Simulated assay, not measured.
Amino acid sequence: MSDLNKASAEALEAARQSDQFAVMLAAIQAVQKQPACQHQAPVPQSSGSAAKWVGIGAGASVFMIALAVSAVAVAISAVALTVCVLVLRSVWQDIQKGKG
């Protein structure tokens, strides 16, 4: 083969290879543009933020403190009522002794 025929054969081979590379590149680009899995359900987005949970925590803390304070108030009222009843009972007994 002469140099011209050899160069021509190599040019034809190079053209075939470049066509093959173009087809492979187009296939790769087409695959990359498609989503990974079309059957996958969309991921639900979070409906809340950190501020929402901080607000809930603060509200719950205020509620629990109010509940504790009211429980202490009930306990103090019960002690005061008990003391009052005991004093009145003692006074009543003293009055009964004085009459009899």
Results as ranks from 00 to 15, higher is better:
S70L: 13
A50Q: 12
K52M: 10
V43H: 11
V31K: 07
V79Q: 02
Q45M: 08
Q40R: 14
P35Y: 02
Q93I: 14
F63S: 10
L67H: 04
L86W: 02
V62G: 01
A22L: 03
Q93L: 12
N5D: 15
S90H: 08
A9G: 04
G57I: 03
R16Q: 05
L4S: 14
S49C: 09
A71I: 06
A15N: 07
S90G: 13
A71P: 00
M64R: 10
R89V: 12
S61C: 07
M64G: 05
I56H: 08
D94G: 08
P44G: 04
A60R: 11
A27W: 01
Q17G: 02
A14Q: 09
E10K: 01
R16T: 03
F21A: 04
S70R: 05
S2A: 12
V83Q: 09
R89Y: 08
M1D: 13
A51M: 06
I76H: 02
D3E: 15
C37P: 01
F63K: 09
A26T: 03
A36F: 08
S77L: 14
A26L: 05
Q45K: 14
Q96L: 11
G59K: 08
Q38N: 04
L25W: 00
S61N: 09
S18R: 08
V69S: 10
K52Q: 06
S49L: 03
Q34K: 07
P44R: 03
S90E: 01
S47H: 09
P35L: 03
S47T: 11
G100H: 09
C84W: 08
A50R: 13
K52P: 00
S46I: 02
S49N: 15
S77H: 13
V23L: 06
A26M: 01
